[in-house]
Amino acid sequence: MRIIRIFTRGIRVAFKSVFRNLSLSLASISSTSITLVIVGLAILFTFNVNSITKHIEDVLTVIVFVDKNVTDEEINDLKTKINSNDNVNKETLEYRSQDYLKEQLSAKDDDLKKVFETLDTNPLQATFVFRVSDVKKIDETVKEIEQYDHVDYIKYGESLASKLVSMLEVIRNACVITVIALILVTIFLISNTIKITIFSRRHELSIMRLVGTSNTVIKLPFLFEGFIIGIIGSIIPVLLNIFGYTFFYDYVGGDLFSELIVLVNPNSIVYTTSLVLVLVGGLVGMFGSVNAVRRYLKI
């Protein structure tokens, strides 16, 4: 019972204290809000770069042109060989025969259909189409497959796309590092602001100690207070994150400059990002506050 009373008292005192020290609380809340807005932006940016990279990776297909006059058995052998390559995404591997391609092209284009009709033989080459699991190893994979029997030549997207993927990968890694750095900066900024506010309350802390309050009981309200301040501080960043990003997404119509740069649907990321912001705000507020109090509890 005593523990429950101390706990509930801690929460009650924390709420009272936020309002009784309103100007100090507002300083901590605004510092939290500003840094969390930046963290939120960095997270959304990272999500999008990640998604764009994935999207480009997904559309990057490899086409293996097979020699003409190859038997079914030889095609099966080649398929098995390609399938056994580690970097080939098995689910995407598809064989397109000469007849199939002719049919497809004829259906798409009437002129081509007429040209095919005038020819005695099928000029097209059968192909294997697949995507790779790891785009970075695409050159290696292509070189390896080129060595297989009955492979005429291979085409694998534009070299630009492959460069773009590598570039986006660098950006993605930079973003992850930025987010981590920003979270660390947030921790530093918030805990420093809290340190300043606690400094102005050191007199209060010394009185608490003098009347026989244990260090744990002194820390408890500050722990809740830091949490409350962190949560309140995350409200504006969360709202900006949800409504701001949704507005931006709708405004640009879901993609930037070209269909290649597709933005992530707000529904799938804004809530995760918001949760991260609330957690960062709450936890940093909580531990920043307790950490700041701790130094005044030493005798």
Binding site: M1, R5, R20, E204, I207, M208, V211, G212, T213, S214
Partner: peptide
């Protein structure tokens, strides 16, 4: 005196007992 300025007289006197967890 070392009183907590933002607490009332009652709260100041009750403070030690509250922090000990008494009912």
């Amino acid at each position: 005196f070392k009183l907590l300025p933002k607490l009332t007289v009652y709260e100041n006197i009750a403070y030690p007992l509250e922090s000990y967890g008494l009912d």
